[in-house]
Design a protein around this nucleic acid. Structure first.
Lengths: 145, 145
DNA sequence: TATTGTTATACTCTATAACTATA
DNA sequence: TATAGTTATAGAGTATAACAATA
């Protein structure tokens, strides 16, 4: 018996990716707002936490794919809320070192943990083969962009 | 033989969704910029084209999930570039009817076509079963949000 | 001469609140 | 009294350009 529903519309599949990203993004945005963070600022905390060392703003602009100007604004805001601190670079007097405060490191740690448990919950109950196929399709799309 | 790589990290899978959405979004953004459009403004054109009739701004704000204030700004910009036109509602003098101009309708038509061919190209060569699994996982995630 | 971070400026997305005209 | 759209205001992301201090 033929299954006429088998042919998948590529546009619909791509739309699903956007809807997924949008809905998950909205949830994360809401969770971050509760803590006085924004997605871009949270990303700074996560990058700093991942590197596990102070970073020069120039490094941050490269890691975040944003302009030095934007880094200035992000660090201004994060410093104002005591998530990070600035201090002069010891050998290069043009540069500024940005480090997580204790509060910032704790927040980054929590954010990472919550992201993991949320993702695990979401994928719970799905057949491993389907998840593998999902990843394989995603990889195919990413490499063909 | 055991395959130690079989267990998929849910966080990695979710990250792929974001990377995918971000990369595709960047491409679309660049394509729109060339035509003097932004994603939000292009969405207005597509919605108007989909409904195939003039819409009141209030309708647009609901269809776009944005505030009436934002609709005013979007239509101001689109009208300034002659993609859409405003005219008074015939029976409700509070309301404004927004219609695509010929240029706007043509642009919406092109955007839709290009989206379809791009999506088809992207998914080309993938096993139908994998695409089906991809959709199934995406649906599972969307319903469990 | 090149690089780091800043000030200056601008555009877009987005939201809330107050207001006007109309229903 | 409620609704449609506007003005006013604001915060956030993003970008370019010019500039000062330093390398």
């Amino acid at each position: 018996m033929y299954n006429y529903a088998m042919a998948v519309e590529p546009v619909a599949a791509l739309d699903k990716v956007f809807e997924l990203a949008s809905r998950v993004g909205d949830l994360m945005h809401a969770a971050l707002t509760e803590r006085g963070l924004t997605p871009a600022r949270a990303e700074v905390l996560l990058v700093l936490h991942g590197r596990a060392r102070p970073m020069v703003q120039r490094e941050l602009s490269q890691a975040l794919h944003c302009t030095p100007r934007h880094v200035t604004a992000l660090i201004d805001a994060l410093e104002g809320d005591s998530w990070v601190s600035r201090r002069p670079h010891p050998s290069d007097r043009r540069a500024t070192l940005v480090a997580l405060t204790e509060a910032g490191a704790a927040a980054a740690e929590r954010l990472g943990n919550e992201r993991e448990t949320a993702a695990a919950t979401l994928f719970e109950g799905l057949p491993a083969a389907d998840i593998a196929a999902f990843m394989s399709v995603a990889d195919h799309l990413l490499t063909h962009l």
